[in-house]
């Protein structure tokens, strides 16, 4: 086995396995394949062997999984994975054209990498951001409402060694760094979790409600929870709640008429 998988990586693989219930370590396989990509930039045969060894399963079992999922790449991905959504909504609003423009400019097709090995292009299925359509992502961070020119501008910045700022999401990290987060490691760049405020489409309904003073009447956080008739043993009854009640909770639950249907 190649020594690309250092003791640190092995330690990380063991940490992933420890997240799942004892005896269920195989659940670690998907995150572990992300971990492999954080080291290699794709999943090589050595990467599969590494997972197999860590989990005590066969290489064929790992390969069957690795080849099933779109995000595990079989060839090295560049520092920048550029994904353009060409599902229906983005496609008709301009995503198809943006993809074509990028493909021509970069001289690569779907799932291909530029000759200098830095940029990989792919078209993506619906990225759950249709209210921002058309969208593209770089290492899975969103660039919203793009047209072909803007898409080209973003990619040219990448070519120039710059890091364009995503519309919603923090400053970019490299593909390998992103893969470490997908393996389950928390963001460690100062302030990055907070970067990338929500855009107007996300807030559209909330803004209307605020502007026109709409709220749902009758909300009383002290509304009691209907009690059961029999008080059998259970964590809620056997252990008195040591936690303070909500500051606003004036009445103990259960001394008022029940809401909803009668409990059985």
């Amino acid at each position: 086995m190649s020594d690309i998988f250092t003791e640190e990586t092995r330690e990380r693989a063991r940490a992933i396995m420890a997240r799942y219930p004892a005896g269920r370590e195989r659940s670690a396989l998907l995150p572990m394949l992300h971990l492999v990509q954080s080291v290699e930039g794709y999943v090589s045969p050595e990467g599969m062997a590494f997972c197999a060894e860590m989990l005590g399963i066969t290489k064929a079992q790992v390969a069957a999984v690795a080849t099933f999922y779109t995000m595990y790449k079989r060839r090295p991905v560049g520092d920048w994975l550029v994904s353009v959504c060409t599902n229906t909504m983005c496609g008709v609003l301009g995503g198809d054209k943006a993809y074509q423009a990028l493909s021509e400019h970069l001289g690569v097709g779907h799932d291909e990498t530029t000759e200098d090995g830095r940029i990989t292009l792919e078209h993506a299925e619906c990225l759950a951001a249709c209210d921002y359509a058309p969208v593209m992502t770089v290492n899975y961070e969103f660039f919203d409402k793009i047209d072909a020119d803007q898409a080209l501008g973003i990619v040219k910045q990448l070519e120039n060694g710059e890091r364009p700022q995503p519309t919603r999401g923090p400053r970019l990290c490299t593909f390998k760094e992103a893969e470490l987060q997908l393996a389950g490691w928390s963001e460690d760049r100062d302030g990055a979790v907070g970067e990338g405020p929500a855009g107007e489409p996300t807030l559209a309904g909330s803004r209307l409600a605020e502007r026109f003073g709409v709220s749902v009447p009758g909300f009383d956080p002290n509304t009691p929870i209907a009690r059961r008739d029999d008080k059998g043993a259970g964590p809620g009854n056997s252990v008195p709640p040591a936690a303070p009640k909500p500051a606003s909770d004036g009445k103990p639950a259960g001394d008022a008429p029940t809401v909803g249907k009668e409990s059985k």
């Binding site: 956080p221 929870i225 209907a226 009690r227 059961r228 259970g234 964590p235 709640p241 303070p244 639950a253």
Partner: peptide
């Protein structure tokens, strides 16, 4: 606050 309120109830009461 909902969590604290829920812990004061029996699990079956929450299901109900």
């Amino acid at each position: 606050t909902a969590l604290r309120k829920a812990f004061a109830a029996h699990p079956d009461e929450l299901i109900q």
